[in-house]
Design a protein around this nucleic acid. Sequence first.
DNA 1: CTGAAAGCGCTTACAG
DNA 2: CTGAAAGCGCTTACAG
Lengths: 304, 304
Amino acid sequence: MTRPATIVDVARVAGVSRQTVTRAMHDMAGISPATRDRVLAAARELNYHPSRFGRGLVKPAARTLGLLVGDLTNPYYAELASTVLRLAGERGWNVVMAEPGSVADLTGGADAVIGFTGLALDPPATGAPNLPVVEIDPPRVQPGHGRVEFERATATRDAVRHLLSRGVRRPVVLDRAGTSARGRAFAEAFRAEGVEPVPADRELGWPDLAGAAPDALVAFNDLDGFRLLRDLASAGVAVPGEVKVVGVDGLAVGEFVTPRLSTLAIDLTEVAGAALDLVVELSQGRSEAAVRVVAHRFVARDST
Amino acid sequence: MTRPATIVDVARVAGVSRQTVTRAMHDMAGISPATRDRVLAAARELNYHPSRFGRGLVKPAARTLGLLVGDLTNPYYAELASTVLRLAGERGWNVVMAEPGSVADLTGGADAVIGFTGLALDPPATGAPNLPVVEIDPPRVQPGHGRVEFERATATRDAVRHLLSRGVRRPVVLDRAGTSARGRAFAEAFRAEGVEPVPADRELGWPDLAGAAPDALVAFNDLDGFRLLRDLASAGVAVPGEVKVVGVDGLAVGEFVTPRLSTLAIDLTEVAGAALDLVVELSQGRSEAAVRVVAHRFVARDST
DNA sequence: CTGAAAGCGCTTACAG
DNA sequence: CTGAAAGCGCTTACAG
């Protein structure tokens, strides 16, 4: 593979000047049809594609937002991404996306970054020279970064009281060894009501958890909740009769599983909007340590 | 808002040359700590962010792939996007995404484009000067564009025979007035087996469709299938006992609805890989009208 | 209708 | 450790 063709290559082959090539490529006025055809033919022959960089340097271009999300296969991230795409599009921004696993060089391709940076701490994908960064639900405070924080205490308390009012006495909270904010929030909320929850590993399924004899399962997220629901159904355990199940995320598909999954929902449009607002503030240097808070709410459906 | 700061602004404020600024920004060797600090302070004060374009012009940058998908809220598009992100990342490409609704200027931000261009025909988002384009499941042939075509005849025939073998005699095929390739494929397959399907509008739900007294519903896609399943359950109609339901897309979540949805699945990893291969060929000018074919397969689950 | 000149913001050798 | 010069690929006035 040789060096890609540039505008001067095309100009040479077509026997014209550089700006005549520009005129032909962008279908501008002031060029004879014959010349245009000759230029276009040369461009095709050389497989010429104008460089985004040369062009961007001289024409005002759309700003580009880097979006760092988890696996899009999880509707939670997909829905957030969808909202960000829409909102960013309305503001005239382009969006480059990366999942933590992919090695895309966000720093070179974006003017600012938002996302779940907690997902990709090892290679600091956001450690660009002075790039504005807004973290969503970050595990810790990063100086200079904007933050969209989640308020979950209220909704968690609502969920816990709801469960207790329905007779729950032996809840199991599934988590990664109590490391997540959601897991800790649930544990504290149960204790505040005088009930000691049973901790369990997030990965566990139904036959595994039966030993704990729980009357409620707090899943790590909705997707895990779906899995538990399916496993419980296979095992012939009645939900919510024998065991109640609650998820976290508020996925729309939760309406389609059986029984419909109760969950802690968050308004992702609000989250996306807040993140976008903050990133604009930061890129204009208007804000030092910008923070927005978005609250979860408990949505009681049929699984509790 | 004034003009954004450039490297010369920082150099002037810090009282150094441009390349000393570069050295400081990128933490390069050959600069005294004191100078670096002074430069960094000036950069922060001016809210300086190096221009991607200036940089891209002079350093080899990652190529950028434009990805045009439908609403990411549909897991079908989300899963494809996820795969493309991973595959593109492995090849060192960045990915800019746009949903048809968003007005992001893909042409200025990408070196090549793949996606469901059929979704955004009105404003030819891909009509860039000579950009390589690969269309997935395109409604019509566009000269010069690569294509990943779907082969659905075989899987559709399998699905139809499966339905007939289970006693189906009055199938309803939901479509947008018979305009979709999937809808036509099902209608033809039923006719080939001697059964005339009842056409219906894609938007219709269960109470609406009851009048046709169907014993099978072919949903436009899995998401529609989920909705029908839910409506049928509410109405107390037994699936698959009284009515069988089949979707199209092969969503993984189909495993979690009740009953598990039978569907026409396609391997999205294969689709993404083919699209990426083609786009690389095209951007290297190696291929004139490149085409790959990926086949659906029928996945019988519990709803039929 | 066509072209010579200047400049966009950055980095890479090369001098000092 | 620091800077003057050249150049990356393109477009925008300005001449002709």
